[in-house]
Structure formats: structure tokens, C-alpha cells
Design a protein around this nucleic acid. Structure first.
Lengths: 145, 145
DNA sequence: TATTGTTATACTCTATAACTATA
DNA sequence: TATAGTTATAGAGTATAACAATA
């Protein structure tokens, strides 16, 4: 095995400052980290239940309720009872929600690009490609078994 | 800008399962995550104060005290008052501490290698190289300014 | 008075469990 | 009875502030 720091150590070490850098950008858009993750998830596809949304962003279903309340009140998401099963809540992004999401994400990725600029172009492409491959795995696949 | 998920999102998404996968390995060695980080930091070089150690691993100085107590009691670290300034505590790894560290790290990296096996050899090398570059930066450098 | 380590307190985040409404 | 959502409670993890020893 090649001598290197632990993968988890390096990634955790990167994670904290990256999140710290995101927060002020999100705050400018009136978003918390969880609210932003909700917008990202709903932008990919509407969901039929809040539990599915929580699962999708790795949160507990009890933890996103307050954020959903707020996002709905501000008109960034739609959240209506499913007519065919009124226990469930149909969730989707509004046009305004998509606008806020796009604006926040642009600001975030601008900062990230500055960091990526430290890498040689080829490494940078392989790095992003690898990250996308690994981050697309399920938690079980990441862990190993 | 190329269309991609946020860097922070991908990295955070990887971080959690990687840490979850580490914990059972650490537990086999009787280590918590903070205790393990202490061993890693002291393996690189002994330190003269606990505050410096806390800083090195991104912890608050008040938070590592219990772990230092335990590691010292188990003979994994030396922790003696500095003769020239008895307020400070000289910190270093014992031989047994290094043994435990090596054993735990071997187990952790074995798991990580299985994950890295999902990447093409060239990407994998560029990925690790990039990670080492970025993780070596200070938090301020990671954030941008 | 300033600094190192420690202890005590408060606060935030998260997880668990109870409750309601629908089915 | 089972499920989706909600609310309430408890616990872990963290940060802040006060304290004791040494300089």
C-alpha cells in the first residue's frame, strides 16, 4: 500500500472549511445548509413524501420539517397533500425556488473554482471525475459492505 | 463553468460513510476518533502544549483532555510537565502508542483501498495526489480568503 | 498580568419516542 | 394495524466562560 494520509482524514479536513465557506453565501440567500440541500434535491426531481426527501439528503424526517415550513412560506417549494393519499405531501420546486437555488449555487461554485485552480488542469479533471463517481455511490457501497 | 454538483456536497457526502466505516475499526483498538487523531498528530511530531495539539487536529483544547487522560493511562502517550515551564505538557507517542496507531491505520486504509479500487488507476492516482494537495492547505487557504 | 491546563455551564445538533391524521 | 407527518423529549457533541497553577 502506498504511504498516504487516511482518505477519511483528508476528506474530513477539506469538508469543514468548504462548508464554512458556503454558509455566508447561503445566508445571503436566506438559506440554511439543510434548506439548500432540500432545494438541490427537489431540483433534480419532485418527491412524493417528506420521508423520501429526508432520505435523499441524509437527514432525519423530523429534522427537515421546520425548513420545509419556511421554504413553503417563502414560496420556494410547493407542498401539497397527495389527493390519492392525503397522508403524503407532494414536494416540488417553484420557479422562484429554482431561481434562488441557481443563484446560491453559482456563488458557491465560484468560490470552489478558486480552490480547484490550485490543481493542474489534468489532475483537476480527474479529481472531479473521481469525486462524482464516488459521491454517486450509496453509503453502503462507500463503506465497502 | 462546467456543470457539476457542488464540491462541498460531494465531499461531505463521502465523508460521513467513510467515518462510519472507520469507527468499528477504531473501536477494535479501543480508540475514539479524537483519540486516533491525537495519535496521528503525535506520530508526526511531539508537541509542547495541549493547545498546539488541539489546534493541529482542529479541536477545542477543552475537548481533548479526557482523551489525553485515557491515552496516558493506557500508556499510549507520554504527557509530562515541561521542566522549563511547568504550565505546559510535553506530549509524545510511546512505542505502544505507535504500534496501536499503525495497526488501526492499516485496518482503515485496507477498507479505503476497496473503495479506491472503483477508480481507474490513473484517476485514482490523480485523485489521491489532488486530495493530498488540497488537504495540506490551511483552512483559510481552502476557503479562499 | 498573561498563559496553560482544567472544570463547569450553556447551547446546538441530532436521535428517539410519542402523538395525529389518514389509510 | 400500518404509514406520513408532526411534536416533544432526551442525549451527544460542541462552544463559552470561569477557575487553579505557573510564569
Amino acid at each position: 500500500m502506498t504511504d498516504r494520509p487516511d482518505l477519511a482524514a483528508m476528506i474530513s479536513r477539506l469538508s469543514r472549511p468548504l462548508i464554512d465557506a458556503e454558509l455566508p453565501v447561503l445566508r445571503e440567500h436566506g438559506l440554511s445548509m439543510w434548506a439548500y440541500m432540500v432545494l438541490l434535491a427537489l431540483d433534480e426531481r419532485p418527491l412524493r413524501t417528506q420521508a423520501a426527501l429526508a432520505e435523499a439528503i441524509g437527514a432525519d424526517k423530523t429534522r427537515i420539517i421546520g425548513f420545509l415550513d419556511d421554504l413553503q412560506q417563502r414560496g420556494l417549494i410547493d407542498r401539497t397533500p397527495d389527493p390519492t393519499d392525503r397522508r403524503a405531501r407532494l414536494l416540488s420546486l417553484t420557479a422562484e425556488g429554482r431561481r434562488v437555488r441557481d443563484s446560491a449555487q453559482a456563488g458557491i461554485q465560484r468560490k470552489e473554482e478558486r480552490l480547484l485552480g490550485r490543481l493542474p488542469e489534468e489532475d483537476r479533471r480527474a479529481f472531479l471525475r473521481s469525486l462524482q463517481t464516488l459521491a454517486a455511490l450509496s453509503p453502503e457501497e462507500i463503506v465497502g459492505e
